[in-house]
Amino acid sequence: MSADLESILRPVDNPMPPFPAKHVTIASGEEMVIRQVTRDEIPDILPHVAPLIYVERDFYDVVAARVYSELLSYYRYRIQDAYVLVAQIDGELCAVVNGRMATPEVGMSLHTLAMRRGLRIGAHAFAAKMEYHMDIMGQQEVLIVAESPIGFRRWMIEYNLEKRFDVPHELGGVPSWALTKELFDRARATLVVGRRPVPEELLEKAHAAILPPSDPPTPPEDLLAATRSQYDSTGTALILQRWRQEGKV
């Protein structure tokens, strides 16, 4: 590929203030660090996103496939003004969240992918993303959509988001919802939590390595059972089953 053509294809990022790392105590009492990752770290994250593409429950498949493509696009310079935050406990990758600065005033929330469940880690990661757009970038609103009913309930209903149905969201072109500055300020007590600066030792551990999630969501163990249950709405179990028979996975 000629260098000239690449310079046309490669977007030029606008300046964005970095997200200052913070730490929170999660329900287990463990300390979780939320920090921005650089392009160089993306290859360390991708292998932990890929397996989730085959988990159909709660739309993990759709979200993971999209996150994978967004991370890869970020790594290979095919998405503009994007950022990626990760949540880590003792280095272990617990959540990935990402978004884009669509305009200086409007943020585009992309995804929240939690890899450890039951401890509200996704809620913390999502909140950090909103804090980034509002308090750190100083934007007026963030456009949000949800793939899963859980996400819809949590964000659209809990925060009473405003409808921006005339704006197709970048994810699937579906109608957008907006977290405005006013709504954000009202929910500040739960959205903006965590402490800064992160103690040196915690931060060092987080930067040292992105370790694999210890208990990520997995596809059903008995794949045949999944198809028998007539609950295989996406066909994922069938595809995986075929691959397994063919020795591909």
Binding site: V24, I26, A27, S28, G29, R116, G118, R120, A127, G194
Partner: peptide
């Protein structure tokens, strides 16, 4: 079902407890 340890610190006392345990 739940195989996650929790602590009083995490669900009640920490500054983030309201978000951990709404």
């Amino acid at each position: 079902h739940l195989q996650q340890e929790i602590s009083i610190e995490g669900i009640l006392d920490s500054p983030e407890a309201m978000t951990n345990n709404p």
